[in-house]
């Protein structure tokens, strides 16, 4: 017994490097990713923050001038429209995508025939890039080639459908296209949620005398509430980053009606050589993202602590 123990002891002593290696391996594996994100995410965020308070124009310069670029930014009418568009678009896009996605998920959850086909059809738009989506829909909205042209060809000569050529309605064209693209994604997550609900709960509610609408409202949807939050957060950060969809669909027009913050940043930084103001606009976008994500992070943290406390 003591012989065997001392043998193990000897083995352990003979390989002192092994312990250190097993302790360092995970850190070594994580290091490249951690360094890259430190430099490229946090490093350049701080750099952009500094540039946004410098007098940079075409090229970055480092003379600190305080918040002046922010005042310049907010006195610009086009930026005001862009930031307003962002909130307008986000609200409609997120709420309606959730609604359409949920409606599709509930419809498919009724054990329809050929469910896999429907699922695939509704999911496909997500696989298409924003540029392609925007281009295709710009054709569909175009009076010369799209829906209006088609319906007039059928004989309704007075039919007009010109969302993208009117400065008041162009934003709805973008919203509709965004919903078309993302609702399949929302549907897929909702459907997974609906399928995870214990079928006995539905049976119990049926015996309890609840109507199907009441069963969804009171029993099923509260259960998948966490999925709502997760999908909404993902959609919101899609919305805030909206850039290529607008470029391909309306080029920010007509006029400046559908300018989005990301388009504005791109414009100032790379077209007009107003780097400081562009950086300030980028920081404002980061702020908008933080407003969305910080409460979500706090909420998920709170939830997991609740779950841990409950055991």
């Amino acid at each position: 017994m003591s012989n065997a123990l001392s043998g193990i002891e000897a083995l352990r002593k003979s390989a002192p490097g092994r312990d250190a290696l097993s302790a360092w391996t995970p850190r070594l594996v994580i290091a490249p990713g951690a360094i890259a994100s430190l430099v490229y995410v946090f490093g350049f965020t701080l750099w952009t923050l500094y540039i946004s308070m410098s007098n940079s124009t075409m090229l970055p310069t480092y003379r600190f001038i305080g918040l002046k670029p922010y005042f310049d930014l907010w006195s610009n009418h086009r930026w005001q429209i862009a930031y307003g568009n962002l909130f307008y678009f986000s609200a409609f896009y997120v709420v309606l995508t959730l609604a359409v996605g949920l409606a599709l998920a509930i419809a498919i959850d009724q054990r329809v025939r050929g469910e896999a086909i429907w699922r695939t059809i509704f999911l496909y738009p997500l696989a298409i890039s924003f540029v392609v989506t925007g281009t295709v829909w710009s054709w569909l909205y175009s009076p010369d080639a799209g829906i209006e042209y088609f319906v007039r060809g059928l004989g309704w000569h007075d039919f007009t459908f010109r969302l993208t050529t009117n400065r008041n309605t162009a934003i709805y064209a973008i919203i509709a296209t965004g919903i078309w693209q993302a609702s399949g994604f929302a549907m897929a997550l909702f459907l997974a949620g609906l399928r995870s609900v214990d079928p006995d709960l539905v049976k119990a509610a049926q015996i309890d005398g609840a109507s199907p609408a009441r069963i969804y409202r009171k029993v099923i949807l509260p259960l998948i509430a966490p999925i709502f939050v997760a999908v909404a957060v993902v959609l919101l950060q899609f919305a805030i980053k909206t850039f290529d969809l607008v470029v391909a669909l309306t080029q920010g027009g007509p006029g400046i009606a559908t300018t989005f913050p990301a388009n504005y940043v791109y414009d100032l930084m790379f077209q007009r050589g107003e780097m400081a103001v562009g950086a300030a606009a980028a920081i404002m976008m980061l702020l908008a993202l933080a407003v969305v994500l910080a409460p979500y992070a706090l909420w998920t943290g709170w939830r997991s602590r609740q779950a841990a406390a409950r055991g």
Binding site: L201, K203, I207, V219, L223
Partner: peptide
């Protein structure tokens, strides 16, 4: 007759209590 109109009550194996 629909389950709700049969005047029955059921206890399930999984209890099927509404978690929320």
């Amino acid at each position: 007759v629909a389950p709700k109109d049969r005047d029955i009550a059921m206890v399930f194996q999984s209890y099927a209590l509404y978690p929320t």
